[in-house]
Amino acid sequence: NKFNKEQQWATYEILNLPNLNEEQRKAFIDSLKDDPSQSANLLAEAKKLNDAQA
């Protein structure tokens, strides 16, 4: 299913963002699990935070 693929991709991407700390990473991944339909939005937020902390 589409959300499952998006969720897996977003999880992979978030795990590989270098500037997030473990707590932030875990929070994003927990949110992905809670609502896979928000995968794209959550990934965008994670990338923004990652860039802000660069």
Rank of each mutant, 00 (worst) to 15 (best):
A40S: 13
L43F: 06
S31D: 07
Q53R: 02
A46T: 00
Q8I: 13
N16V: 07
A46M: 01
L42Q: 04
N50R: 01
N21K: 10
I29F: 05
E6R: 01
K2Q: 15
D51R: 06
N1G: 08
Q53S: 06
Q53G: 06
N1P: 03
L32D: 00
K47M: 08
Q53F: 08
R25L: 06
E6Q: 04
L20S: 00
L32V: 10
A52K: 12
D51N: 11
N41P: 06
N4A: 05
A46R: 00
S39V: 14
F28T: 01
R25F: 03
S39I: 15
L43R: 03
A10V: 13
S31F: 13
R25M: 06
N16F: 03
N50T: 01
E22G: 07
L17F: 07
D35S: 11
A46H: 00
E45T: 10
K33P: 02
A54K: 04
E13H: 13
N1R: 01
L20V: 02
I29E: 02
N1W: 00
A46G: 02
Q7D: 07
L32M: 07
D35H: 12
E23M: 11
N4D: 15
L20P: 00
T11D: 03
E22Y: 08
A52W: 10
R25H: 03
L43K: 02
I29V: 08
K5R: 04
E45H: 06
E45A: 13
S31G: 14
E6T: 04
Q38K: 10
K47G: 03
E22L: 09
P18D: 04
P36Q: 02
L42A: 08
T11A: 15
Q38H: 08
K47A: 06
Q8N: 05
Q8D: 07
N19L: 04
S39L: 13
N50F: 01
N19Q: 04
A40L: 13
F3W: 06
A52V: 14
A52T: 09
L49T: 07
A40M: 15
N19F: 14
I29D: 01
K33Y: 14
K2G: 15
K48Y: 10
L17I: 01
L42T: 12
A27F: 14
E22V: 06
Y12F: 15
D34F: 10
F28H: 01
D35V: 06
N16R: 08
L43T: 04
Q7G: 04
D51Q: 13
N1M: 03
S31M: 15
F3A: 03
Q8V: 10
W9V: 13
N19V: 02
Q38P: 01
E22R: 06
F3E: 13
K26E: 07
Q53A: 06
A52P: 02
N4L: 09
R25T: 06
L15T: 08
E6K: 02
L15H: 09
K48P: 00
N50L: 00
K47Y: 13
L42E: 02
R25Q: 10
L49Q: 07
F3G: 08
L17G: 00
A27L: 14
D35A: 08
F3R: 00
K2M: 15
T11K: 10
Q8T: 11
E22A: 06
N50P: 00
D35N: 13
S39M: 11
T11G: 05
S39E: 04
A40G: 14
N1T: 04
K48I: 12
N41Y: 13
L49A: 05
S37F: 06
L15G: 06
A52Q: 13
A10G: 03
N19E: 04
P18S: 05
Q7N: 04
L17N: 01
K26Q: 13
L49F: 05
L49R: 03
E22D: 13
K48D: 08
D30N: 12
N21I: 06
I14Q: 01
T11E: 15
Q7I: 03
E23Y: 12
K33W: 10
T11L: 15
N1V: 04
L20N: 00
A54N: 13
D35Y: 07
N41V: 09
F28P: 00
R25A: 07
A52R: 09
D35R: 09
D35P: 01
L15A: 14
D30Y: 07
K5Q: 14
W9D: 14
N16S: 12
A40Y: 11
I29R: 03
Q8A: 07
L32A: 04
E23D: 14
F3S: 03
Q24L: 02
Q24H: 02
A27S: 11
L49H: 03
A44E: 15
L17T: 00
P18M: 09
N41H: 11
K2I: 14
A27N: 13
E13R: 04
D30V: 11
P36V: 05
N21S: 15
A52D: 10
R25D: 00
K5N: 13
E23W: 11
S39N: 06
A44W: 08
K5P: 15
E13Q: 13
A54P: 08
A40R: 11
K47V: 11
N16W: 07
P18G: 05
Q24T: 04
Y12W: 12
F3H: 10
E6W: 08
Q8F: 10
K47R: 03
E13Y: 07
D35L: 05
Q38N: 02
Y12D: 15
E6H: 05
D30M: 09
E13G: 05
Y12S: 12
K48F: 08
N16T: 09
L20K: 00
A44G: 08
S37H: 08
D34V: 13
K47F: 09
Y12A: 14
N1S: 02
